[in-house]
Amino acid sequence: MSAPDLSRCSLNTATVKHASLTEAVEAAAGAGLGAVGLWRHQVQEAGAEKAARIVSDAGLRVSSLCRGGFLTATDDAGIAAALEDNRRAIEEAATVGTRELVFVVGGLPAVSAPGQGPRPDAGPQDRDIVATRARVADRLADLAPVAAEHDVRIVLEPLHPMFAADRAVISTLGQALDLAAPFAPETVGVVVDTYHVWWDPALEESIARAGREGRIASYQVCDWVLPLAAEPLNSRGHVGDGYVDFPTISRWVAAAGYAGDVETEIFNEEIWAADPRRTAETVGARYAAHVLPHL
């Protein structure tokens, strides 16, 4: 029996949070995976050019860079800071060798920080989610020319509605596609992340639309496990350990024409505590069992 083809399987380095960039890359290569998804703090620690060499020397690709975004500031200083940070993120993506820069667009201005309570001075306008989404659209218009100049694609990631207040005011793939619509698909795309969108009754139609529009830039997989952790953000599990219907969603993504890398991105304290090499091997095995046959 031949070994499964893991060339499209990517280890997002958030899955092995406590590993260094070199350790994460070595774990992915040792498990026979074809790519890694990088996070900016690791890229910045190593330097973008060195990070690119670490990945390429291991024979891997960079499937994406996480993350840009947080575009919902209302004051001039906050807007300027967000634009500057995202310009740097675009440059970093180009330097490490990926076109795909994942954006988490940000939550309501009323939030003091992700996962925290509202600011004491927050007023009704800071809880206006419709106006907040409009500001996201404005910032995308500011950043799209910069992304196009560097041949980088802004990849909008809808997050599960439980994160709408503090992390992302777009919750469905359809909303992400509506925000992307004014821009060329090679400049603004979307990611299908099973953890965040598996519940959406319009998911099949939205994936098909994303395919027709040429906007699927990434397919990220991990499972929805219960009970939720005290920090819900860290409630992801290995593919096959929870409730997501990976065969069906993977068939929808394949039917939409997506042929790129499939990233496993997991936030989970127990998985973070495991040996990165074993985690990478599990990522490959679960991909081969639950995703690959349906692509």
Rank of each mutant, 00 (worst) to 15 (best):
T282R: 14
V130E: 12
E204P: 03
F70N: 12
V192I: 15
G97D: 10
E149M: 12
P185K: 09
V55A: 08
E91T: 13
V192K: 07
V104P: 01
V253T: 09
Q220L: 07
R286N: 10
L11E: 01
I216P: 09
E92K: 02
T194S: 14
I154K: 02
G97K: 06
G37T: 04
S10D: 01
E84R: 08
T95H: 11
A29D: 04
A93I: 11
A230E: 15
S171T: 15
G30H: 08
G68L: 03
L33H: 03
L143C: 08
R212W: 07
L203F: 07
R61H: 12
G211R: 10
V221K: 05
L156E: 09
P120N: 06
V188S: 07
D142Q: 14
G78N: 02
A28V: 08
G47L: 05
A147V: 10
F103C: 06
E149K: 15
D138C: 00
L6C: 06
R209G: 04
D193K: 06
D126C: 00
A168T: 06
W198V: 08
G97C: 09
V104T: 07
A285E: 15
P158I: 00
D193R: 02
G30F: 10
R8G: 02
E205M: 11
A89W: 03
T72H: 08
D261F: 15
G97H: 07
V221S: 04
R8K: 13
I54G: 08
E204V: 01
V130F: 04
V225G: 02
D261P: 05
V291W: 09
G117L: 02
E91G: 14
E45L: 13
R133P: 03
T74V: 12
D178A: 13
P161C: 04
A217N: 07
T279G: 05
T72P: 07
A168M: 01
A202Y: 05
A259R: 15
R167W: 02
R286W: 02
K17Q: 08
A289F: 03
R61W: 00
W199Y: 14
Q125S: 13
A31Q: 02
L38Y: 04
V102M: 14
V146C: 11
W224C: 09
A110L: 00
V262I: 14
V239Y: 12
E204T: 05
E205N: 12
K50E: 12
P293N: 13
E204W: 01
G107I: 03
G242Q: 07
A274F: 03
E205P: 00
C9M: 00
T248Y: 11
V16L: 09
P158A: 04
W252L: 02
D151W: 00
P232H: 08
F163M: 00
